[in-house]
């Protein structure tokens, strides 16, 4: 409506209120994000930064030394995510369903205790489990022995075929509190009348959970899934704390986060390469973006949200 010259004077207080947040956010988050994408098209040749187009990506996907590592990390990452979806979220939902049953005593106490692992740092969690599962200390084998299952014991973190699954389960142990809390909140928000109406029709107990509550909390399960996805695909700390940057044994626990760290920061004899690191970061960004878009446009729209 107003012409550019005849615009009412700028309301400076709006600018002042917005500026600090927008500046910090743009300078430290958005700009580096795009700059990282940009760097993935460059490389260092003779001490100078040269534009190389898609060469870094060609190396990443075409050169066997790189592509093997990349696909290994990506595959491991999907396994890591799958275990979270199959173990963490169902356990979280089950715990929440039990916690939300009416007139349950000590509910607050259980809730607080089960959330404790979530607040611990990865360093503590990684080392604590490493010690507990260690064959030297013998807590895990002794406990299995006590229930007559000693033959099941193996040095899980040291075996290529078990290490990743073990670490995924440790991560599940750590984060089960989050789906539990979110689902618990969703279950509490279901109005009493709906459940009572179900009761009148003879739907109680487990049937009430499957037929009434579960459909109503589907949107929350969707949010948890996408949060799990994003968190898993930029995970790093637990693997690093438990297995080091080489994600041993023999890279069997390598995920995208550790792969990117090794590549751009360098480790032991390997020199850091910021450009290849950027290429991996770009690939991670793309994967996360695809996941988020799939969720926003594919899943979230189909989930009905009920307003009570």
């Amino acid at each position: 409506m107003a012409t550019p010259s005849g615009q009412s004077k700028i309301r400076w207080h709006v600018v002042v209120f917005l500026a600090p947040a927008v500046l910090v956010y743009t300078a430290v988050m958005i700009y580096p994000l795009f700059n990282t994408m940009r760097l993935s098209f460059f490389n260092r040749i003779d001490q100078e930064r040269v534009f190389v187009g898609l060469d870094n990506f060609r190396t990443l996907f075409g050169d066997a030394i790189w592509s093997d590592q990349f696909w290994n990390a990506l595959g491991n990452n999907f396994w890591f995510f799958l275990i979270h979806m199959l173990v963490q979220n169902p356990i979280g939902i089950a715990l929440a369903a039990i916690l939300s049953s009416p007139r349950l005593r000590f509910a607050a106490l259980y809730r607080t205790a089960i959330f404790v692992p979530t607040i611990l740092s990865f360093v503590i969690v990684g080392f604590a489990w490493k010690l507990i599962l260690s064959p030297i200390w013998g807590i895990a084998p002794d406990m299995l022995d006590a229930i007559g299952l000693k033959f099941l014991y193996a040095p899980w973190l040291g075996k290529e075929e078990y290490a990743l699954t073990t670490l995924s389960l440790v991560s599940v142990w750590q984060f089960v509190g989050i789906p539990m809390m979110l689902i618990y909140a969703a279950l509490l928000s279901i109005p009493e009348e709906i459940l009572e109406a179900g009761e009148c029709d003879g739907i109680t107990g487990m049937a009430a959970f499957w037929k009434i509550k579960l459909p109503l909390i589907l949107p929350s399960i969707g949010i948890i899934s996408i949060l799990t996805f994003v968190a898993n695909f930029n995970a790093f700390d637990l693997i690093y704390a438990a297995q080091g940057a080489l994600a041993g044994p023999d890279f069997s626990t390598d995920i995208l986060g550790t792969f990117m760290y090794r590549t751009f920061f360098g480790f032991q004899l390997q020199l850091g390469d910021p450009h290849m690191g950027s290429a991996i970061a770009s690939a991670m960004f793309l994967i996360i973006l695809v996941g988020v878009c799939l969720y926003l446009f594919g899943i979230q729209r189909r989930l009905r949200t009920y307003q009570f």
Partner: peptide, 15 residues
Amino acid sequence: GIMIPIRIGTVAILE
């Protein structure tokens, strides 16, 4: 920024 992790931009943040 709620959905996009800041870690993706680490290379440029470090520079």
